[in-house]
């Protein structure tokens, strides 16, 4: 006899579920190319690397696609039901991001939410880029919404949609979404430190 506590997430089931999803939703998986950067390099402790552990995480990348399709989940599958960027990054004309996503996570529905829920503009498509390319794109005023370093720091450390990554709520089964590997405080400190040190992109 085994005991399974009802409604308490079981890590094994979770992992199993994700694996099985990957195996059995071929139709979905085959329609896009894998975008997550294999994280097989030795993790360094510099502010740049710490910051990038967050910015390359699927919590961030899923809404910085290199196409017009928002991604979902750990496997970054295309958003269900064919939702796309739309003309202003807010979804389609009548069925928008905010048809389902509100200014906060909804723990009853498992739908994530944060203020101004939307896709990052196309110029900020980071999906498929490595951390150095992301950094370059991020500093490029032609791509970053014409933001200065100060404005970037503000965006990266104060914007509630960006910081949603650290409080991503639960999914449709009530299972907490994975957060980036470091804490919000560590991340903020790393961002501030990197910009204070001149926002220098290390050599690859």
């Amino acid at each position: 006899m085994k005991t399974i506590p009802h409604s308490i997430p079981i890590i094994l089931l979770l992992v199993g579920g994700i694996l099985m999803t990957a195996i059995y939703s071929r139709g979905v998986v085959s329609s896009y190319s894998s975008t997550t950067i294999p994280n097989n390099e030795v993790l360094k402790d510099t502010p740049f690397d710490k910051m990038m552990q967050v910015l390359t995480h699927e919590r961030c990348i899923n809404c910085h696609p290199n196409d017009n399709i928002p991604k979902q989940g750990k496997d970054s599958h295309p958003h269900y039901f064919g939702m796309k960027r739309g003309e202003d990054n807010l979804g389609f004309t009548a069925t928008q991001c905010t048809t389902c996503h509100q200014p906060e996570n909804n723990d009853y529905s498992g739908v994530p939410g944060a203020p101004h829920w939307s896709l990052a503009p196309k110029s900020m498509g980071w999906q498929g880029l490595d951390k150095y390319e992301i950094a370059k794109a991020m500093l490029d005023r032609a791509k970053n919404g014409n933001r200065s370093h100060d404005e970037l720091v503000h965006h990266l450390t104060e914007d509630s949609l960006v910081l949603w990554a650290f409080d991503p709520g639960v999914d449709h089964e009530g299972i907490p979404r994975e957060t980036p590997p470091i804490s919000e405080a560590e991340y903020k400190a790393a961002v501030i430190a990197w910009f204070e040190n001149g926002a220098i992109i290390p050599k690859e």
Binding site: L13, G16, G17, M20, T21, Y80, E173
Partner: peptide
């Protein structure tokens, strides 16, 4: 998957 019938939601 691991004893559970999946998935559990439209989409």
């Amino acid at each position: 998957a691991d004893g559970q019938l999946q998935p559990t939601i439209y989409g």
